[in-house]
Simulated assay, not measured.
Amino acid sequence: MEYELPWTEKYRPKTLSEMVGQEEVVERLKAYAEKKEMPNLLFAGPPGTGKTTAAMALAREIFGDSFEQNFLELNASDERGINVVRETIKEFARTLPFGGAKFKIIFLDEADALTADAQHALRRTMEKYAATSRFILSCNYSSKIIEPIQSRCAIFRFRPLSEEQIKERLKFIAEKEGLNVTEDGYNALVYVSEGDLRRAINLLQASAALSKEIDEKLVFQVASKARPQDIRKMMEVALKGDFMEARKLLYNTMIEYGMSGDDVIKQMHREVFNLDIDDRTKVQLIDKIGEYEFRMVEGANERIQMEALLAQFLRFGKDKNI
């Protein structure tokens, strides 16, 4: 059986010009690529916004054919202790660049997962091997990187991709793979991905494994997410005072889409803002959603808590005469 590459790798942009979005970041990185020179870099931003792709594309444009010999990629969340700095990184950094390059590049993905001790060791390594190596660190939260490392890096902020940018890339892949995706299918992919292009592409591939015809229903089933209108309907019914019907809709949603109470409550939080109620009531409902989510995190029975939360919706609906 022939192994198929994940589409996130199969369709990963090879050059900076092919990248989706992040125009300001790309322009600055292109300047480094043209000069074949760069400082240490820190890429910060949400998952699936192009941090890894940018690092690899920059390295390819700087090194050309000697890319593989001069580029080391490590996922710091897998290898987060001080030993990875002392052994793997130092071993690579201490050798001379290959093929006449001025330096090597060490890419540390999810660097905010490194322990504090490992980060301090990394800071010393960055100083010691500055003549032969450059570091690119990627993280979701730059605040989790110690200040001495931040001060040694040029910081680039990656923003979540827009709906249009995600749709455009998905349509490109769907055309290459011979898929027929409906417009509501694309909207569902965008809704579930929340600005994360990698998640959207993985979901498209998972849906395509079931059918070449991809619509909204298939996407939500594969993603184990409820349609937003189903979640809104459940909350609206509760606000109007019909507890038993709202409870029935809750359990039907959990069974049909294979969702946990935690999954449902997160979608409720997202959809409250789209309810046709006044802002004050929305704030009060958000406060209650947060309270019951915390109870479930602490180990309370999710079914009991979800029913209790719906009961709170009834109370607010009654108070406001919704």
Rank of each mutant, 00 (worst) to 15 (best):
M1P: 11
Y3I: 14
K14W: 07
S17H: 06
M19A: 10
V26K: 13
A31M: 08
K35N: 00
E37D: 15
M38Q: 01
M38Y: 00
G45T: 01
P47R: 04
G48V: 03
G50R: 02
K51T: 00
K51H: 02
A54Q: 01
G64P: 01
D65W: 00
D65A: 08
S66L: 09
S77D: 03
S77E: 05
R86W: 06
E91S: 15
P97N: 10
G99M: 06
K102T: 00
A113H: 05
A113G: 05
A130N: 12
R134Q: 00
L137R: 02
L137T: 01
S138E: 01
N140L: 05
Y141F: 15
S142Q: 13
S143P: 03
P148S: 09
A154D: 00
R157K: 14
R159D: 11
P160Y: 04
P160V: 05
S162I: 10
Q165R: 09
I166F: 05
K167Y: 11
I173K: 05
A174L: 09
E177C: 08
N187E: 15
A188I: 09
L189T: 08
Y191V: 03
N202F: 08
N202G: 15
L203F: 10
A208Q: 07
S211N: 13
I214R: 02
D215C: 05
M234C: 13
D242N: 14
A246Q: 09
A246V: 10
R247Q: 13
K248H: 14
L250G: 09
L250R: 09
Y251N: 15
Y251F: 15
T253W: 01
M259N: 12
S260M: 12
I265C: 04
I265V: 13
H269S: 15
L275D: 06
D276L: 10
I277Q: 06
Q284I: 09
I286W: 03
I286T: 13
G290V: 12
Y292I: 06
Q305L: 11
A311P: 02
L314W: 10
L314Q: 12
K320D: 14
